[in-house]
């Protein structure tokens, strides 16, 4: 059975069917991309995977357990974390604090530990801080830990979001257009980093517009258009798929 299995999920807003019976599967240690034109329903799928939206029908299972229609917090706890298309950092907190918020759910000391600064508090606080520094170093933000998130350039803010998602000890990381706003060199570095993540045992699902990025990095690709899955396969298959090209070129008629 697949690691993450999405079976025929549907989401409606009023009369509009945003996502229509979409199914896909993601295996462990894989980089899977979901692509499609603007408004195709990609982010809605992420929102359903992470519990922001409930689903109207279908099911989502992770490692065999159903996870649809559960609270976002529980989904993070199970091991799925995400970044956002329009960056949602905590702008007036420092970079390291942002990442420490990511470790929150794995930090087990309680109220009493906090008030009395027990050894448990000290030990865990130190562990998590070290972990945050380690993650930031690995993503190339080691020199930025003291900065406030809002003062970082766009590309680095995206990296902080990824670092924050990793800090939740997620097994699957959902990246919503991680290369948006990055220059070619930055996005090249990002690609390398995402590959490293996979090699370390993370599973990655990616929404991306930049075809260069997608074709370069994905193990498999799903294409969504108008809320429906229209194609799936290896990057090479997708690149040559007639339907996909049509969707991207804006609905060129078959008989045209």
């Amino acid at each position: 059975m697949a690691y993450l299995k999405v079976n025929s999920i549907t989401k409606q807003f009023g009369g509009l069917v945003a996502v229509d019976k979409v199914s896909f599967e993601v295996e462990k240690d894989e980089i899977v991309s979901i692509i499609g034109p603007n408004g195709a329903g990609k982010t809605t799928i992420f929102n359903m995977l992470t519990g922001v939206y409930g689903i109207d029908s279908g099911e989502i299972t992770f490692d065999g357990t159903p996870i649809h229609n559960t609270m976002p917090q529980n989904i993070v706890d199970i091991g799925i974390s995400r970044t956002f298309q329009n960056i949602r950092l905590f702008p007036n907190m420092r970079v390291i604090e942002n990442v420490l918020v990511g470790t929150h759910i794995r930090t087990k000391y309680g109220f009493i530990d906090t008030l009395f600064r027990t050894p448990r508090y000290k030990r865990e606080e130190a562990q998590k801080t070290l972990r945050a520094i380690e993650i930031l170093n690995s993503i190339g933000l080691g020199n930025r830990i003291n900065d406030y998130a809002q003062n970082l350039p766009y590309g680095e803010q995206r990296k902080v979001e990824i670092a924050r998602a990793i800090a939740t000890d997620a097994k699957i990381i959902l990246l919503d257009e991680p290369a948006a706003g990055m220059n070619p060199q930055e996005s090249e570095e990002l690609l390398r980093f995402i590959r490293e993540l996979r090699d370390k045992g993370y599973t990655i699902i990616l929404i991306e517009h930049d075809m260069n990025v997608v074709m370069n990095i994905s193990d498999r690709i799903y294409v969504i258009d108008h809320g429906k899955k229209i194609a799936e396969g290896l990057p090479a298959d997708i690149a040559g798929n007639q339907q996909v090209i049509e969707a991207y070129l804006g609905g060129v008629k078959k008989d045209a």
């Binding site: 976002p72 917090q73 905590f90 702008p91 907190m93 918020v101 929150h104 906090t114 008030l115 508090y121």
Partner: peptide, 28 residues
Amino acid sequence: TLLIKSKIGRAFMSIKEDELAAIMMGIK
């Protein structure tokens, strides 16, 4: 001071900064 300089304080601040993002980080 003790509360603010802990995961509790960081959770408070993250809620003020962006509640949805805080939820998505698993904060109840």
